[in-house]
Computed example of a mutant assay.
Amino acid sequence: MTKDKSKVFLFIDNDPAPIAELDTPIVFDLDTRKLTDGEHILKIISHSPTGREGIRTIHFTVANGPAIRIEGLKNKDVVDGTLSLMINAYDKGNQKSFLINGSETPQTIPFWIWIIIILFIGWALYYEITSANIQ
């Protein structure tokens, strides 16, 4: 260990072997593609030149896999009968170019928009009928 720099050890989850052993200050690129999707813990243990030790843990979630959208069923819904589900899965691509194919999930129109459309059409018909009677 150098006398004037702290050293840090990076651990993922409960793995006893560090993924990196670095002298500070350092910029480290954590490649999350090597981790499974889900929750993880990054544990950083530092050793100062004076022999003191510090520990910091950071909880994070990896979501490298394709994003999954579902319409027609929500988490913890109580359901019965047959459900009509719309499911889409799409990837982020290589993050250097925008992937448009399949990246948008089609959605049904919410019922409140239908109500607004019907009210607007009703008002427009009422306006046309009443203005035609005046002339």
Rank of each mutant, 00 (worst) to 15 (best):
I55K: 09
I55V: 12
I55M: 13
I55P: 00
I55G: 02
R56L: 12
R56I: 04
T57A: 09
T57N: 09
T57G: 02
T57C: 05
T57E: 10
I58W: 09
I58M: 11
H59L: 15
H59F: 15
H59Y: 14
H59W: 14
F60T: 01
F60V: 01
F60L: 01
F60I: 01
T61G: 06
T61P: 03
T61Q: 15
V62S: 00
V62F: 00
V62M: 00
V62T: 03
V62I: 03
A63Q: 13
A63D: 14
A63Y: 10
N64H: 08
N64D: 11
G65D: 12
P66S: 04
P66W: 06
A67V: 04
A67I: 05
A67G: 02
A67R: 11
I68L: 14
I68R: 14
I68N: 11
I68E: 13
R69S: 08
R69I: 08
I70T: 09
I70R: 11
I70Q: 10
I70P: 01
I70V: 13
E71C: 01
E71F: 03
E71M: 03
G72W: 03
G72A: 05
G72D: 04
L73F: 14
L73R: 10
L73T: 04
L73K: 11
K74G: 10
K74R: 12
K74S: 10
N75K: 08
N75M: 05
K76P: 01
K76A: 14
D77V: 15
D77M: 12
D77G: 14
V78I: 01
V79Y: 09
V79C: 09
V79E: 07
V79H: 05
D80C: 08
D80G: 13
G81H: 12
T82F: 03
T82P: 00
T82Q: 08
T82V: 10
T82W: 02
T82N: 07
L83G: 11
S84M: 04
S84T: 07
L85A: 07
L85I: 06
L85N: 08
L85Y: 06
M86W: 00
M86K: 05
M86D: 01
M86N: 07
M86P: 00
I87N: 02
I87Q: 05
I87A: 05
N88C: 03
N88A: 03
N88W: 05
N88P: 02
N88T: 08
A89G: 10
A89C: 06
A89P: 05
Y90F: 08
Y90W: 02
Y90A: 01
Y90S: 03
D91K: 00
D91G: 00
D91T: 01
K92Q: 11
K92C: 02
K92T: 09
K92M: 05
K92W: 05
K92Y: 10
G93Q: 03
G93F: 06
G93S: 03
N94V: 04
N94S: 07
Q95W: 09
Q95I: 12
K96R: 14
K96S: 14
K96W: 15
S97Q: 10
S97H: 09
F98T: 04
F98K: 05
